[in-house]
């Protein structure tokens, strides 16, 4: 479950390719233009490596942290079947983090470094997980719509240029199709149920709408930075393009259930085919992603507790002769 990689639009792009070997760079770009994938052993520009590590790492952290708001509902899931399904979903998400950490490792950053950057707050993760899941209906809305957004992002990125990331995403998308169906089933169950159940899902939808609108990140400013990342097939679509796709696929399904969304401006412009909406509060987004959200502190605290409590076990089973080499693919 993941939105879009967050690049601060106000941050100046680095020199990018200024000191790269022009011959190697041309070969690299020609390979990507021809639709071929880049593998870990290939030469690549420093900026390509850096941006991919940042992006895949953020994605991995989002899977781990994303399991927390839903995980809190395992003990309180209504019924045994839903409890089993939610446990499977949460376990999938943690597995996705493993796949993504592995992909990032092939670029030369160790898993220990990535986890350290997460628990000290240096690395970002998807901002939406800094909000609490107040009722069971919240967990249903997350499973349906947050996963829907994540699938849009992930199928888009699966067309990217870096082999290990593409392979991980293909497996992830395959598993997440169950999450989407499971989430939709839960939302529909509540929306077609009693008056109380409808109120619950309606309230959850209103709570999650602003973070869902934030999910794909701020509107892209056209910059040298994003142009190069598009050319290298690191970034495959703009934040706004993905947000439009999300609105187009899911708003009609929400309205079809006679549920409302808390944006009076929200409608599709039939002439342009684009959705019109009230611009979400990007100041809040910035504030929360930089640490000041309702759940940032506790999410990282839970993560730190897990690392610390498992540490003696990992140390006890580590073989003396063990050594780390960068994984192959």
């Amino acid at each position: 479950m993941y939105g879009n990689a967050y690049i601060d639009p106000d941050k100046a792009p680095n020199s990018l390719v200024a000191d790269e070997d022009p011959v190697k760079l041309a070969e690299f770009e020609a390979r990507i233009a021809a639709g071929e994938k880049i593998e870990p052993q290939d030469w690549m520009p420093k900026e390509y490596r850096k941006q991919l590590i940042r992006m895949i790492e953020q994605h991995a952290h989002s899977e781990i942290i994303g399991a927390l708001p839903e995980g809190t509902w395992i003990t309180r899931a209504p019924g045994f079947r839903r409890k089993l399904a939610l446990m499977a979903k949460v376990q999938d998400e943690v597995g996705h983090a493993q796949l993504l950490y592995s992909a990032a490792e092939t670029l030369g950053k160790s898993r220990e470094q990535m986890i350290n950057d997460l628990i000290t707050g240096k690395s970002k993760y998807s901002n939406i997980f800094n909000y609490p899941a107040e009722t069971w209906a919240d967990s249903a809305v997350i499973a349906w719509l947050v996963d829907a957004g994540a699938i849009i992002n992930q199928t888009t990125n699966a067309r990217g240029s870096y082999g290990p990331y593409v392979r991980a995403l293909e497996r992830i998308c395959y598993e997440e199709s169950f999450h989407l169906k499971y989430g939709h089933d839960n939302v529909v169950h509540l929306a077609t149920g009693t008056k109380k159940q409808r109120e619950m899902v309606q309230a959850a939808l209103h709570r999650w709408w602003p973070p869902l609108m934030h999910f794909f990140g701020p509107a892209d400013k056209i910059s040298v930075h994003s142009e190069v990342l598009m050319k290298w097939k690191v970034k495959m679509a703009s934040n706004d393009e993905m947000r439009q796709q999300f609105l187009d696929m899911y708003v009609p399904k929400i309205w079809d259930l006679e549920l409302t969304l808390p944006d009076p401006e929200l409608r599709k412009d039939e002439e342009t085919g684009r959705w019109i909406y009230t611009e979400p509060d990007w100041e809040e987004f910035k504030r929360v992603i930089n640490g000041d959200g309702p759940c940032n502190a506790e999410r990282l605290a839970v993560r730190r507790m897990a690392e610390e409590k498992g540490r003696w076990v990992r140390r006890a089973i580590l073989g003396e002769k063990a050594k780390y080499v960068k994984p192959f693919a």
Binding site: T72, E112, I115, N116, P132, A297, A301, R304, A322, K323
Partner: peptide, 25 residues
């Protein structure tokens, strides 16, 4: 709303020692 916070009673301010090399095998 997280039982790991409310029942395990962890302090959200507590930091831990960073992971060392080979912690993840």
């Amino acid at each position: 709303l997280d039982p790991r916070i409310t029942r395990a009673n962890i302090n959200v301010e507590d930091q831990i020692q960073p992971l060392q090399e080979m912690d993840q095998f």
